[in-house]
């Protein structure tokens, strides 16, 4: 009997180990991301933006793709992180990594506090709750003008060198390297998380919350945990934006930012972590191309892309892509 449990445990451990092994396409992705430093020396600002947006999308993927929570207000945590980092820098704590850690902690605290609102209710209730939490934060940032600068934004942020070693430059090279390093770090955390038994239990509760509860998964606690982690990562993304652009405006809390995040996940596909990153790249390229055609009406095209993707069926698009990845994988191994 005991040996049976032991062998079952061994099997489970083996399964986790198999799932966490690095695949060739994954390594290739990160190799390209690093190579981009040298391949596109003049586009580092854009690359930096992609890394930040990708990190934000990754944080949404954690709750959407793994826990099945549709949020319309994830920009709240992005904004909290951005304002925290910006205000810290203004208050004299100009060291970026310390600012990042504090921003992550503050965003996590806010995420934890609001996570209890998303446990209960239907999809619709959750949409409303997340949306209105984000709006409350916009209102707060708007009202406390003396602190946040209101609609003018937070000006006069001066960042110190990273760890006292690397100064930010105008071309954005340091910024991109810094953001990429943080993105990779956060990605490792997320990857470890979703491929652990914890991640498996999340997927179980996404599929069927009632049954997940019935086999002994504490669903409410799982949701609180993943929501807090996701909020924290979104906060880090916001802090990165504040630090690398030395500016924070009300835009960081905008509804459009939450919607952008969802769109990116739709483009890239959710539930396998790379969706947010690949989506962010596609999103930035599309934005670049379409804005140069009609600068003011980028929003129209974004809407059109969303509608088209959904009407055609995002599962179909993702399935096609997944098939292509599988083929790559098949030829690689």
């Amino acid at each position: 009997m005991r040996s049976a449990t032991a062998s079952a445990r061994e099997k489970a451990r083996q399964a986790v180990a198999d799932a966490t092994r690095w695949q060739t396409p994954e390594l290739a992705f990160w190799a390209v991301a690093i190579a981009a430093i040298f391949l596109f020396p003049s586009r580092h600002l854009l690359l930096n933006e992609i890394a930040i947006v990708g990190l934000f999308a990754l944080s949404i993927d954690l709750i959407l793709g793994y826990a099945g929570i549709v949020s319309l207000g994830h920009a709240a945590f992005f904004g909290v992180g951005a304002y925290t980092a910006g205000l810290l820098a203004k208050a004299g704590i100009g060291e970026p990594v310390a600012g990042l850690a504090i921003a992550a902690a503050v965003a996590a605290a806010v995420g934890f506090a609001t996570s209890f609102l998303v446990i209960r209710g239907s999809d619709l209730t959750r949409l409303m709750v997340t949306l209105s939490v984000a709006l409350v934060f916009v209102e707060i940032a708007n009202r406390f003008e003396s602190i946040t600068g209101g609609v003018d934004g937070l000006l006069g942020i001066s960042m110190g060198p990273i760890l006292g070693l690397f100064e930010f430059d105008f071309g954005g090279t340091t910024a991109y390297c810094y953001s990429l390093a943080v993105l990779f770090g956060m990605f490792l955390v997320a990857r470890r998380l979703v491929r652990s038994p914890f991640g498996t239990s999340l997927r179980a509760l996404k599929e069927n919350r009632l049954r997940a509860g019935a086999i002994g998964i504490p669903t409410a606690r799982r949701i609180v945990t993943i929501y807090t982690i996701s909020a924290s990562i979104a906060g880090v993304a916001g802090a990165l934006l504040a630090q690398t652009t030395a500016f924070v405006s009300l835009e960081v809390l905008d509804f459009a930012r939450s919607a952008d995040g969802l769109l990116i996940l739709v483009i890239g596909g959710s539930g396998y972590l790379y969706g947010g990153l690949l989506g962010a790249i596609a999103f930035a390229l599309m934005r670049d191309a379409l804005s140069s055609l009609t600068p003011a009406y980028w929003m129209f095209w974004m809407g059109a892309i969303l509608v088209a993707l959904v009407v055609v069926g995002r599962e179909r698009v993702v399935a096609k892509f997944a098939a292509a990845v599988d083929r790559l994988r098949g030829s690689g191994s």
């Binding site: 319309l72 919607a259 739709v266 129209f300 969303l306 993707l309 009407v311």
Partner: peptide, 19 residues
């Protein structure tokens, strides 16, 4: 469709209408 699809679809329509 799922609620997520409906949300995304109608947000897309809103953006198109606004622009």
């Amino acid at each position: 469709r799922s609620h997520l699809d409906q949300v995304l679809f109608s947000i897309g329509l809103v953006f198109m209408a606004v622009a």
